[in-house]
Design a protein around this nucleic acid. Sequence first.
DNA 1: CCCTGATGGGAAACCGTTTTCGGGCGAGGT
DNA 2: ACCTCGCCCGAAAACGGTTTCCCATCAGGG
Lengths: 372, 372
Amino acid sequence: MAKLTIRDIAALAGVSKSTVSLVLNNSPKVDPATRRHVLAVMRRNRYVPSFAATALAKGSTRLIGMVVPGLSWHMVASINIGVAAVTERSGFDIILYTATNDRDYGSLIDRILTSSMVSGLLVVSHEQPLEPLVQLHSDGLPVVLVNTIDADVALPSVTADNYDGALTAMDHLLQLGHERIACVQGRMVYRCCQDRYRGYLDALRSAGIQPDPELTKPGDFLPEQIRARSRELFALPADQRPTAVFAHSDVTAYAVMTAAAEAGLRVPEDVSVIGFDDIESAAQIRPPLTTIQQPFVDMGKRAAEMLLDAIGPTDEPPAGESAGESVGDEPADERPRLVMPTSLIVRASCGPAPVTRSPRGRTQTTTTPAKA
Amino acid sequence: MAKLTIRDIAALAGVSKSTVSLVLNNSPKVDPATRRHVLAVMRRNRYVPSFAATALAKGSTRLIGMVVPGLSWHMVASINIGVAAVTERSGFDIILYTATNDRDYGSLIDRILTSSMVSGLLVVSHEQPLEPLVQLHSDGLPVVLVNTIDADVALPSVTADNYDGALTAMDHLLQLGHERIACVQGRMVYRCCQDRYRGYLDALRSAGIQPDPELTKPGDFLPEQIRARSRELFALPADQRPTAVFAHSDVTAYAVMTAAAEAGLRVPEDVSVIGFDDIESAAQIRPPLTTIQQPFVDMGKRAAEMLLDAIGPTDEPPAGESAGESVGDEPADERPRLVMPTSLIVRASCGPAPVTRSPRGRTQTTTTPAKA
DNA sequence: CCCTGATGGGAAACCGTTTTCGGGCGAGGT
DNA sequence: ACCTCGCCCGAAAACGGTTTCCCATCAGGG
């Protein structure tokens, strides 16, 4: 089981190193019979070419880097599933960069860049400045952004249509008769959260409702903070209290629902809650969460595909004995920015607006002396 | 920004390649002044040695492989955080192998083994046969198992003390006065689940309670199945119905709680539920989940440390200009199997056993004609 | 003053693969 | 039968580092 080199295989097969190499890279220049023989010898001895040597000689690796902000997010995990599916199929491996600590970020990029260790970079949900990435990209390293988008930056990217998703969520609520709709935000440094908030505001306005600043609460994806802010929401007098809440993520929605329960409010009878993401548990909790589904694994797949065909032609890796692998892939059309549709998943956490105070304000007009 | 090689640096610094290389590997054989000068040139030109060339020449990489069964599990994500923390600190990168599809498993192992791409392997929550890993290990590739343990296999491993955790959970329930305690199992192919189940049975027996097979339900970590089986549990006549449920994971517990709610049972008043894991949301749901905490990120850290010092002495990577880096690490004592303690986190999902049918059966004895 | 030993630095072999280039050999045309 | 191709395969030069070995130099001691 000692390390077998290409030379050993050549000797064993009675040919030269170069022939073995040509077989490895299935060049047409080698006689089919020879090829079969060499392949047989390789298989018999369980030969696998040295990764390092190949990388050095070829000047590139079959590795793609993936930088993520921790894996604990459901989104990242799901995206990875999609990415893994396609990279694996084409013989690429993934190097994972967990970009938790900001300080090393610069040196990380440096390493990635110059060591030419990866032949492509996938960047998921990025909070860091994008300039270094642009730099990498213009140095020739394929980069694609996932769920990270910046207006001014011309990097290929795939995102969900967060704005449209927010619109859809709000329409759902609006059609159920809600008028006082709160918004509990995620991390507003993310473009996706900004888009969702824009959607929230626009939907409100185009329904003729003036957004009430009181009803927008920061959450930052922090459960504790979300609960605290939600409590404020639910502690409002009945005529100012929201009858529905648009949460910027499913886990945010969970925390909102918890706060509602603590305030003695029932979901959806007293207050409707809609989430964003459609994580697995959304269907399992009580009540099942109505939410906007993001196609995470598809996003991962598409991103990986974009990256792969930016990297260039990749011959089939294992050089199996199969014939006719020439499936005509869809020609990689220029699509620097892919935004994927979201969809409304209706479950049970949203119901009609409570009729306590009916359409044209009853209790309300009497209690407020002179203001309208 | 064209690729800078060691030769360029040598020329720029007015020394030979070998000197530059010696500086890179901070050998003591180079004059401090020369070293400083070379370092300065390297830094000025943002030189980073070619990953592939280094790997080829050295015969090893600063890469460790991590094979995981998908990232969507909270456990895997948390473990990765720990792993990333320590690998990053010592300049290692992680190659992620998502072992979703079983079929390619053999060839995956082959690739890992022979291409000598990684210098160590971390295997998390493994469902596959372990022989290939043993093979790898005896071929000299450091391997450590995380949350995967097999009695007969002599691979280094770190796990949580699942048996003890189960005992603790059961004791908690027992002390609250519960006697009819159900168990909803996880994937029993995992040793951890087997251990938890052993703990369940033993705790029951040592409390003088004969385990009722009716109260053990398979769950397999599948929400749908868990709910279905839980429904069966809660549909039992009152005198046979469990007053508490030990779930093999937190998400299992969620599904159990959902089923309870559907059956009109309150938690913890009518039925207590205890989980296992202590995932983030456990504190956020209603009611907050009492559970057994597994130290996932610590497990990841320890596993990574074990792996790293099995890999051997690793000089500081970037050769900074600091002096006196010789921190005396704790000498890697022989600890092939590390089992880490779990801890009980008491929240609100477990309460005293309902007194409906008090200690020596009241309603029960009247309703059941002749049985006791 | 010469010899010795230590020490910093250079030359070159090597790691395992790719890739270019040239040559041997068989077949086909005239 | 000879020449001309064309097709395969072998020889050798990269790829960018590491590492061994040896030489030059300088200091110190006899």
